[in-house]
Amino acid sequence: MSLLTPHLGFFVWTLIAFIVLLLLLKKFAWTPILKSLKDRETGIAESLASAEKVKAEMAQLKNENEALLAKAREERAQLLKEARDTKDRIINEAKEQAKVEANKIITEAQAAIQNQKMAAITEVKNQVGALVIEVAEKVLRRELAGKGEQESFIKQLTNEVKLN
């Protein structure tokens, strides 16, 4: 059993040991271990990929949100503007209508005043006429001597007249 001459017994035992070990380890160690390591690696790769995907989705969602927000802001501004316009229009319309109404009322009032005035004047005319007739009657009934007397009498009469 010298150093450089291979020993048959050890050779055979090593050969058997290696082959048995290879078969046993392949079945009970390498297959499950390598499968687990591979699964873990694919799992990590998938997680990273999905994280990247979620990140992209988030970014897209954010963009969409911002666009939506901008649109909403615009719409609000539009609505406010419309409301302001409507308000102005309503106020203006109301003003116009009020003016028209006021004018109409004024016109009607003026007409009424005119009517009243005319009625009053007519009545005054009638009364003056009646008074004149009455005074003339009285003057005529009294025989007046002098011109002075006549005038004082008329004055007295006129003083009696009270314009209502």
């Binding site: 020993h7 048959l8 017994g9 050890f10 055979v12 035992w13 090593t14 040991a17 070990l21 046993l24 380890l25 160690a29």
Partner: peptide, 21 residues
């Protein structure tokens, strides 16, 4: 003579492989 003895080397190798396994 063919010597298939479980020598020092063989026994130690088996021990090592059992531990490894």
């Amino acid at each position: 003579v063919f010597d298939f003895s479980l020598t020092k080397n063989v026994v130690q190798m088996f021990l090592a492989l059992i531990v490894l396994y």
